[in-house]
Design a binder for these strands. Structure first.
Lengths: 349, 349
DNA sequence: CGCTGTCATGATAGCGCTACCATACGTTTT
DNA sequence: AAAACGTATGGTAGCGCTATCATGACAGCG
């Protein structure tokens, strides 16, 4: 069926489309008496147009209340000012603080954060990554070094900078974090130094919070090295004050001669500390308690909580800076950044 | 300058553009043996194509590893699956919990959250709104009913659903929140019922956290109504445990005969409670302490903190549901939703 | 058997912006 | 003086997708 007769009238009644009343750059350009492309340059590369052109464009923008369509701009230039941030949870303050650090630094550079929450589900992470790549994010930040196969492939091939935060290690691209195994060792050493011999590690959902289990690895290695047992109590509820109280109860039942408990984080530790006090136990004489993270709460308890301070906000800031550096084309010498940690001695051990 | 000579050779060497190796829908369509538009329909309106077409498109998507370009799709359809969420702070857990509620509901419906943080700066809010509108967000969620003039104008005219959360009142469009004045009254009544007569309200940065000052209004009205003074202590640091401790100290100095302190939130209250205990004060006998929010921490302290429980996550969920309902074209009967609050009696009053 | 009404599919024309080239003009170099 | 360069500006053609309209096929109806 060869069509030899062209459509008599090409329907050139301008196939009208939804007329999104939005003010466009062309309208601004017309009002300013320049071409659209000059208007575009006046806004995005101000140094590439004459002062007079720039001024009249800016005046027109103001007058018409022009709001740039970022969608169109990003599509045309195939780069967006979006940066995806994927975290496993928002309940855990730790991630929120990292996000804060990222946000304050990125927003100052004109980037927007696209936030995703995996709920500790790696398949969900993969889905989020797909979606975010669909938004042509300039970069992706994700918590942790563990991903599922598909996600890993997608990320390594997407061509955008990838920043893996929280834990130190060989990542796909950029990495900012701390050594959790070392942190576990550090606290275990401290407890042994203090003379404790019966030490239990308490964590919650370690398969999900695998960084906590890395800390346990370090802890275990030190204890074993000192010829001690390294019992582990794993709770099924997520880290919280409540879970900490339960952890304490479980330890007291299962290991009655425990002298010290090394909790996977400060929430658990604080919950246990408060519960212990409610029960009339003396800390650290009856039982010593240690945490991880260095949340402010620990410093306001009596006794103050012994913990390990992790520079969370700083981690976010540093990650953001490194990303910005990479995105602005500069070479990034160090792909891996150790933000370190610090033993914070309290009275609870 | 009439151009009568067309460009000799129209440079039709296909003005090649950056060839973003990305797999496009056209490629998928070709692989599936259908037209691009059918491929588009197969993905976005699966019920509008035949089963066979749909299957071959999906197979091609899988085979080529196609990731839809959401930018292009949104531009073409002038609607995005983005929803902007603007909060004044992430340090305050309260907002994070609202975000959680929003996120779990919105993500389930395929929406993405674009997060903005104003740092309690209304001009910053305006900037964020501008940016977000540039992304063609389908809707905007913002914390609070107070905005600056420009922001208000922009929001009311943007044509997208606006959801104002946290506080109840006459908003621009949709509203989910609670009555903070009533909450302040509620706690004040409780304290009076308990027999306290010298009651101080302690808040932090009330000009920023104006919801706390609304609670003070309610508090003050009740106290004045009972013929009592309603002194206010305002701290300059943001709400935190540390600030709470300082608030306590300030109250003890300025109003030595204070019997009860009504704190603007649980962080302050908990900080004060812990500090008081450290100083050997008995709560509530020496001094009673009340908070607001119903954070878990309060329930784990001894004595348990008397507070007002605000349904934060629920607020986020409800806001999300209402938005989705509106976005799916359904009529929204109630533009205003009161999520209420609940006096949570502890042992601290 | 024509008429109308679905249904599946496709051709076309944008969405609003910017990359890419081309042009015009003034300034410097040889 | 001619050539080479730099700067400000504009025309054109897309970025990848979808709204709109048009088409052809087939069913139901009098």
């Amino acid at each position: 069926m060869s069509k030899d007769t062209p459509p008599t009238v090409p329907t050139h009644t301008t196939k009208q489309r939804r007329s999104s009343d939005q003010v466009t750059l062309s309208q601004v350009a017309k009002a300013a008496g320049v071409s659209p492309i000059t208007a575009s340059r006046a806004l995005n590369h101000p140094d590439k147009v004459s002062d007079s052109a720039r001024d009249s464009v800016l005046a027109a923008v103001e007058k018409l209340g022009y709001v740039p369509n970022l969608l169109a701009g990003s599509l045309a230039s195939s780069r967006s000012q979006l940066i995806a941030v994927i975290v496993p949870s928002l309940i855990n303050t730790v991630f929120v603080e990292v996000i804060q650090g990222l946000q304050e630094t990125l927003e100052a550079e004109g980037y927007q954060i696209l936030l995703g929450n995996t709920d500790y589900d790696l398949d969900r992470e993969y889905q989020l990554v797909r979606t975010f790549l669909g938004w042509s994010c300039s970069a992706l930040v994700t918590a942790g070094l563990r991903h599922n196969k598909a996600c890993h492939t997608l990320l390594t091939n997407c061509g955008h900078p990838i920043m893996e935060v929280m834990e130190l290690g060989e990542g796909m691209d950029l990495n900012v974090g701390l050594d959790h195994v070392a942190a576990g060792r550090c606290m275990a050493n401290h407890l042994i130094d203090k003379g404790y011999r019966h030490i239990v590690y308490v964590g919650a959902r370690l398969s999900q919070d695998y960084r906590a289990s890395m800390r346990f690895e370090g802890h275990e290695a030190v204890l074993k090295g000192a010829g001690l047992d390294a019992p582990l109590v794993e709770l099924d509820t997520l880290g919280s004050l409540q879970a900490g109280a339960e952890g304490l109860a479980q330890v007291l039942t299962q290991y009655p001669d425990t002298q010290a408990i090394h909790f996977a984080n400060d929430d658990l530790a604080a919950g246990a500390l408060l519960a212990a006090q409610r029960q009339g136990l003396n800390i650290p004489n009856d039982i010593a308690i240690a945490g991880f993270n260095g949340l402010p709460l620990g410093q306001h308890l009596t006794p103050q909580l012994t913990t390990i301070l992790s520079p969370r906000k700083e981690m976010g800031r540093l990650a953001a800076k490194e990303l910005i550096r990479r995105l602005s084309g500069k070479n990034v010498y160090r792909r891996q950044h150790d933000v370190g940690f610090k033993l914070q001695l309290g009275e609870s051990t």
